[in-house]
């Protein structure tokens, strides 16, 4: 986060941050004008996404994510010894034989920390960021109301989850194509699938990981309604994702494991079996849906009863 000027700037209302502050203000002005027209509700969504992906912070986060698989690929390419099976992250030893595994290894390395970190920053900023900058009341001028604003903010965070995962996978595939031979992919079951099918599986995995992050996004949205200090909401979200993973690794708490939002995060490997094992995807989707409903309802309760002063 520290490499990212606008992230820290969002926490200090009034601080001179020309790029972000002005783009947010112009966005608020846009919303004010659009809200008057019918269809203003959808305009709010479009403008939210535009603002999100125009921010330098968003691009910095995506670039940092893209760097993970690229670094892995370069490190494996430059090192003299080939990685041994069973050492380092899973699939690392396969990278030299098939570059597509760069994407998979990149995801495995990103899932415990980097992806929750970036998602926590974006989700924690949703409401608190606007409140901190003093733009929240402008957004609420729109007739669509507070519920719609929450939905728009959540959709923005969910789209970022997709963008983040696709970034890791794409960067991994490109780095793999550039540095290693790419051919038919060997699955965990020992079967080999064609290149076209491999790209299909890579997309499925990106979808799985995106769904995995939806629960965390909902938690971040709820935390974001509790405070006007976005950094607080971001930190709380990220800390919770780490706590969930620590709890998930304690065998004494195995009754709790299926209820932790991080429990199925690494089970995307089930998509690399032959035939595809869809049961973990179903369980994961159900779990994330539960978190979305509960924390969505909590965020609504908080946001709808909150006095908006800024």
């Amino acid at each position: 986060m520290s490499d990212n000027p606008s992230a820290s700037g969002a926490g200090r209302p009034g601080a001179a941050q020309p790029a972000t502050a002005s783009s947010d203000l112009s966005a608020a002005a846009q919303i004010e004008t659009r809200a008057a027209r019918p269809g203003g509700a959808w305009a709010l969504l479009v403008s939210e996404l535009t603002v999100l992906f125009r921010r330098r912070r968003t691009w910095a986060l995506l670039l940092a994510l893209a760097a993970v698989p690229v670094l892995i690929a370069v490190a494996v390419r430059l090192s003299a010894s080939t990685p041994q099976p069973g050492r380092g992250p899973p699939f690392l030893d396969q990278v030299t034989q098939n570059g597509l595994f760069v994407a998979v290894t990149g995801l495995i390395v990103s899932i415990p920390l980097f992806l929750p970190l970036t998602v926590g920053v974006v989700a924690g900023d949703t409401i608190a960021g606007e409140a901190g900058l003093g733009t929240l009341r402008y957004l609420l001028v729109a007739p669509a109301g507070r519920v719609w604003l929450l939905v728009v903010k959540y959709v923005g965070a969910a789209v970022f989850c997709l963008a983040a995962t696709v970034t890791v996978v794409t960067a991994g595939v490109l780095a793999g194509l550039a540095l290693f031979p790419v051919g038919p992919l060997t699955l965990l079951s020992g079967d080999t699938i064609s290149l076209a099918e491999s790209f299909g599986r890579a997309l499925l995995i990106a979808g799985y990981v995106t769904v995995s992050l939806l629960g965390l996004s909902a938690i971040g949205l709820f935390f974001s309604t509790l405070t006007v200090v976005p950094v607080g909401a971001m930190a709380a979200t990220i800390v919770l994702s780490v706590v969930a993973q620590v709890l998930d690794s304690l065998p004494q708490l195995d009754w709790l494991h299926p209820w932790l939002f991080s429990h199925y995060w690494l089970d995307f490997a089930d998509l690399l079996r032959q035939p595809i094992d869809a049961s973990s995807f179903g369980a994961n989707a159900l779990l994330q849906g539960g978190y979305l409903l509960i924390f969505g309802a909590l965020a609504y309760g908080r946001f709808a009863t909150k006095d908006i002063l800024s």
């Binding site: 409903l293 509960i294 969505g296 309802a297 909590l298 609504y300 309760g301 009863t305």
Partner: peptide, 13 residues
């Protein structure tokens, strides 16, 4: 009333 969903949703689950 606005907190009702936050109570009802976990109860249903």
């Amino acid at each position: 009333l606005k907190w009702m969903p936050a109570v009802a949703v976990p109860a249903v689950i």
